[in-house]
Amino acid sequence: MAYNFREVMSKPERLAPGHRMCAGCGGTIAARMVLRALKPGDKAVIGNATGCMEVSTFMYPYTAWEDSYMHNAFENAGATLSGIETAYHALKKKGKLDETYKFITFGGDGGTYDIGFQSLSGAMERNHDLVYVCYDNGAYMNTGIQRSSATPMFADTTTTPVGKVSNGKMQNRKDLAQIIADHDVPYVAQTTLLTTMKDLYEKAEKAIYTPGAAFLNVMAPCPRGWRYDASDIMEICKLAVETCYWPLFEVVDGQWILTYEPKKKLPIEDFLRTQGRFKHLFKPENEGLLEQYQAEVDRRWEDLLFRCSK
């Protein structure tokens, strides 16, 4: 069905205002849009790993979630939602429940790529009918911008600070969408926040309504951690895609599909220049680092094109 933006935006809001996320937070923009992909008649249980989103959206006694919601701990969002989803089947089987429920959990990259990786892997491998949404802002933002395995190379974080003899994080970011795709789950997709949110919405809808486990990796910029003016978020997301830093793709039953190919791939500097965490890369003596960065983006992009049989 064609994407009807006006209709989608007219759906009821399932994430209420009054939460305490920072002004301009990318995470809640992503969460709002994912929830919009639910059919209005369907009920949902939302899970959440500990992180910014959790401490801000359910600060006792105020929940921002219109649906049922459970936060358990930092590293167990996958397992917790597994239990909820299994209870649903048990109660359905026993005739105790008629309604249709969908199961969606949100976790930052800390709770997803790192401390919650085992729990996520288990939930995916067991193929529970749920969606795990990672709002990836590339560092442990809730505790104050420490590096994660999702942090991009050379980013300045509080545990990979740029200093006299350091250019930020030395390692490349882990490609979690690829790792989850290797679990052979029915649906994996990578997306971010773009104009009408068509890409995010459609992927969320497929993730929610594909039976079995699904994983969405959504790049969700953090103005504080990335050091940019909060109002610039949409431009930054666009540049991430146009530079092929954050490619848009989906993996449907093991088939890799590129969902967007820039007409003209922009240089990585265009993305990096927008954020204070990469400021040091633009010193004259660091030209080599930019070249290294471009080479890494190119290598990953070529690899993705190969997977997508392009």
Binding site: V45, E54, P61, Y69, M70
Partner: peptide, 13 residues
């Protein structure tokens, strides 16, 4: 959580 009449939130900050 699966009470269709009344959503529930659990595990707050």
């Amino acid at each position: 959580l699966l009470n269709p009449e009344m959503p529930m939130a659990i595990g707050p900050y």
